[in-house]
Amino acid sequence: QVALSRTQVCGILREELFQGDAFHQSDTHIFIIMGASGDLAKKKIYPTIWWLFRDGLLPENTFIVGYARSRLTVADIRKQSEPFFKATPEEKLKLEDFFARNSYVAGQYDDAASYQRLNSHMNALHLGSQANRLFYLALPPTVYEAVTKNIHESCMSQIGWNRIIVEKPFGRDLQSSDRLSNHISSLFREDQIYRIDHYLGKEMVQNLMVLRFANRIFGPIWNRDNIACVILTFKEPFGTEGRGGYFDEFGIIRDVMQNHLLQMLCLVAMEKPASTNSDDVRDEKVKVLKCISEVQANNVVLGQYVGNPDGEGEATKGYLDDPTVPRGSTTATFAAVVLYVENERWDGVPFILRCGKALNERKAEVRLQFHDVAGDIFHQQCKRNELVIRVQPNEAVYTKMMTKKPGMFFNPEESELDLTYGNRYKNVKLPDAYERLILDVFCGSQMHFVRSDELREAWRIFTPLLHQIELEKPKPIPYIYGSRGPTEADELMKRVGFQYEGTYKWVNPHKL
């Protein structure tokens, strides 16, 4: 086992960053958080920038500027975001240094004079007029057009580079997404736009490419001749908990499936790229999406959770019991969808996408189930092999396979070949997804960000279904809070070829 401390991990990262040409360590950078008073800024962006600063992973002359409508001070920003920093008493001095680099400007999102004030403020910072500028839009999409237009007109660096990070949702359907994309691309070049999907920053999602293309053993079996089906799962054990009003506007397909799960599907299904260059990788992902037809209604199961009468606390409440959810809402909190990649490698292999709230566990994984062994000599005792990439929690890679049961006879039983990170790298604290992705933006690497043509294809696949749901308002199937979801989803999976045995229990190697 390799035991690495946080300091050692960050030392390795620093070495990698400083050796590259793309990370300008000594240049002045300004990180501007648009929507600095909001939840995302408070819980994710400010803490992430602090962790990067604490670990010495930001360029040395980096300033952080918050911008929002609320009249706040840096002290206010500190008060609301610091509880999420997880700072230790030993880091007190470092924390003071961090907040000394912070400033805040209040202004409207659609007022040109406010942006001119913001620009004057940035120019007044040390070497601010020639600094590289990175704008993070932690804002609702309704203000994107006004904000990007004003940034472009008043706040661009004339000497350094300018980059803009856009948070999902990128529209509600193909038409609104196209409108937003066309607007942003009329102001910024594609190499300046970073559409963030934080799932692409997760260690195991990034590991998929290495697993596939750096190991000879997987190449020959990664196709329709050997793989019976692919299941991509995202499960949350909690409901909307008072935030249903926002969720109800989008629903589970827009929230998770059309982005996170579809991105994971691309990494499983794509061909080997010409290189690890950002556009070479994204070219292959677009090719996969172009091979997927629009979702067919007979390959869809929609569910909505109801309270568990035997549960406790939140578990007793259904989705419609959330006071922020519109009365009688038919918005799905669970969806199972089957897609097919219609190309030579994957023809006929079902890709089953499942996601839901208020389920029995927290889990995100990719599961490849292989065909049955031909010419069975073990009297149907063999179960199908599976390769599982567990994204969260407890990152893991393992192969479910058959071995001989101890004893006199040739009785096979299920076991696993474990390729888990935790076994080799004991207690290594890896940077989280937002840390990686923000560092990628500083480096100018777009590999783990969504390109406009990729986004367009993703919406093309799901828009007809979303429009049909909005028009017909089908009643989702009720499922109990804390269950596996509607049984109809299991029946759909069985119908397209997935075999669920229920006889195997994964042993978490992190707890051995």
Rank of each mutant, 00 (worst) to 15 (best):
M257H: 07
N259L: 14
H260W: 15
L261C: 08
L262D: 00
Q263D: 10
Q263R: 13
M264C: 09
M264F: 09
L265Q: 02
L265D: 01
L265N: 01
C266L: 03
L267Y: 14
E271V: 02
K272C: 14
A274S: 12
S275Y: 04
S275E: 03
T276V: 12
N277E: 11
D279K: 14
D279S: 06
D280M: 13
D280N: 05
D280P: 06
R282T: 08
D283H: 04
K285T: 09
V288E: 00
K290T: 13
I292E: 01
E294V: 07
E294C: 08
Q296F: 06
N299E: 13
N299H: 14
N299M: 13
V300L: 09
V301F: 02
L302A: 03
Q304S: 03
V306K: 06
N308F: 09
N308M: 11
G311Y: 04
G311L: 11
G311C: 09
E312K: 07
G313A: 10
G313V: 15
G313W: 05
A315W: 06
T316S: 13
Y319L: 02
Y319E: 00
L320A: 10
L320S: 11
R327D: 12
G328C: 12
S329H: 01
S329Q: 02
T330H: 10
T331V: 10
F334W: 04
A335V: 04
V337R: 01
V337F: 14
Y340N: 12
R345W: 04
W346C: 00
V349A: 01
P350K: 00
P350I: 02
I352D: 00
R354S: 12
C355E: 01
C355Y: 01
G356Q: 00
K357I: 07
A358L: 02
A358Q: 00
L359N: 02
N360Y: 04
R362M: 13
R362Y: 11
K363E: 15
K363V: 12
E365W: 00
E365C: 06
Q369E: 05
Q369K: 12
F370M: 06
H371K: 15
D372T: 02
A374H: 13
G375I: 06
G375F: 11
G375V: 07
I377M: 14
I377D: 04
H379E: 10
C382T: 06
R384I: 02
R384E: 02
N385K: 01
N385R: 00
N385E: 13
I389P: 00
I389E: 00
I389Q: 00
I389M: 10
R390T: 15
R390P: 12
R390E: 14
V391Q: 12
N394S: 04
N394D: 12
E395A: 07
E395W: 13
V397M: 15
Y398S: 09
K400Q: 13
K400L: 14
M402L: 15
M402Q: 12
T403V: 03
K404E: 14
K405M: 14
M408R: 06
F409D: 12
N411Y: 05
N411I: 08
P412Y: 14
S415G: 13
E416F: 12
L419I: 15
G422M: 06
N423V: 06
N423D: 11
K426N: 09
N427S: 15
N427R: 15
N427E: 13
N427C: 15
V428T: 12
K429P: 15
L430F: 09
P431A: 04
Y434L: 04
Y434R: 15
E435Q: 11
I438E: 00
L439Y: 06
L439H: 06
D440C: 04
V441G: 04
F442A: 07
F442M: 13
S445K: 08
Q446R: 05
Q446A: 12
M447Q: 12
H448P: 13
H448F: 15
R451P: 02
D453C: 05
E454W: 13
E454K: 01
E454F: 14
L455D: 04
E457T: 03
E457D: 06
R460C: 02
P464Q: 08
Q468W: 10
L471I: 07
K473I: 07
K473E: 13
K473T: 05
P476R: 01
I480Q: 11
G482R: 04
G482P: 00
S483W: 02
R484I: 08
R484W: 12
G485A: 02
P486E: 01
T487D: 12
E488G: 05
E488V: 05
A489M: 11
D490C: 12
L492E: 02
M493E: 13
K494V: 07
Q499P: 15
Y500P: 15
E501N: 11
E501R: 07
E501V: 09
G502I: 10
T503M: 13
T503V: 14
K505F: 10
K505L: 09
W506G: 13
P509A: 12
P509K: 10
